[in-house]
């Protein structure tokens, strides 16, 4: 029993921390989806930009983490704002293939990755553990402090965002914009500003996710993409447009990966992730937890 438990606990910790990370990125997508029904394919690169700024401020300018982290978060928000202003809004005004705005976000992400790559020589951008390297020991089982920090931060951010979305007037306006653009305009909601705001919030969340993840596993300029894809998988597995669903989806994906690494083979966790996604899309395309914690009204807004 004891060895069984000591086997399982690390798997749960890894699954939860990885899962919350994916969930946090999934939440970043959800914010934009709530307001615009668009998917931002540059999301992972937003996270990467956050890491790059944080790393550059610490390594090149010698600033402490508590100064660099907020500035990196601001940079993430700025990325979101710029993406919306230079490509998404202009494209939404034109009559184009529905995939074009999505592809547009991807082009901005690629430009960001290419630019950071030139600056860093596609080399690593390491950031140290926030709370020191010594693992926290609970009952003799070591736990990575950064992993625990990710879990805590994610739960806090998801809860805060859920509150904003469902309990404030601003949240109502955000949701209304995503639900029906024309009607929202008629109701006097500044639709353009709402879209812009959602991109900024999304950039901020992505940058937080990136900077929290970087001490865990170092980033290069091209590593944003894979984090972005994992976050998107969390979102689809969980449920469209629901922050808690994205978190649950992320945790589910993270746990499945950790269990496969623990009990089957660590060489096939990635493949398993994509297969799980395809199974979910087949049996429940709206996501496994789509209605979780959603008020009865408007939860069918897709």
């Amino acid at each position: 029993m004891d060895s069984y438990l000591s086997d399982l606990v690390p798997i749960i910790i890894v699954g939860l921390s990885l899962g919350s990370l994916f969930g946090l990125v999934g939440l970043a997508y959800t914010v934009i989806i709530n307001a615009t029904q668009l998917v931002n394919f540059g999301q992972g690169d937003f996270a990467m930009v956050g890491v790059a700024v944080c790393w550059a401020l610490i390594a090149k300018l010698g600033l402490p983490l508590w100064v660099a982290f907020p500035l990196a978060v601001v940079a993430g928000g700025a990325m979101g704002f710029i993406t919306n202003a230079i490509i998404v809004t202009p494209l939404l005004k034109k009559d184009v293939h529905p995939f074009y705005p999505i592809l547009g976000t991807m082009s901005v992400g690629t430009i960001a990755a290419g630019a950071v790559g030139i600056f860093t020589g596609f080399y690593w951008m390491p950031i140290e553990h926030f709370l020191g390297n010594e693992p926290l020991k609970v009952g003799g089982i070591p736990m990575d402090t950064q992993g625990l920090l990710i879990i805590g931060t994610t739960v806090a951010i998801v809860t805060a965002y859920w509150y904003l979305l469902h309990k404030t007037r601003l949240g109502l306006a955000l949701r209304a914009t995503g639900f029906n653009r024309e009607v929202s305009l008629l109701a006097g909601i500044q639709v353009g500003k709402m879209a812009s705001l959602s991109f900024v919030i999304s950039g901020i969340i992505a940058a937080i996710a990136g900077v929290l993840c970087a001490p865990f596993s170092a980033f290069t300029a091209t590593d944003g993409m894979i984090l972005g894809i994992n976050g998107f998988i969390a979102l689809i597995v969980g449920g469209w447009g629901n922050p808690y669903a994205a978190l649950l989806g992320g945790v589910l994906v993270g746990m499945i990966r950790a269990l496969i690494v623990g009990y089957i083979s660590s060489a096939h966790a990635e493949l398993a992730t994509f297969l799980v996604l395809m199974v979910v899309l087949t049996i429940k395309p709206q996501g496994l937890f789509a209605g979780f914690m959603m008020p009865k009204t408007m939860n069918s807004a897709r």
Binding site: D7, P10, I11, I13, V14, S17, L18, L21, P142, D144, G147, C213, F216, S217, D223, I226, A258, V261, G262, S265, S266, A267, A269, E270
Partner: peptide
Amino acid sequence: EVLVEPKSKDLSIQAKK
């Protein structure tokens, strides 16, 4: 023998194995 996928983030399970 443990094979690890590129971009695996946390290797504690593998290290324990």
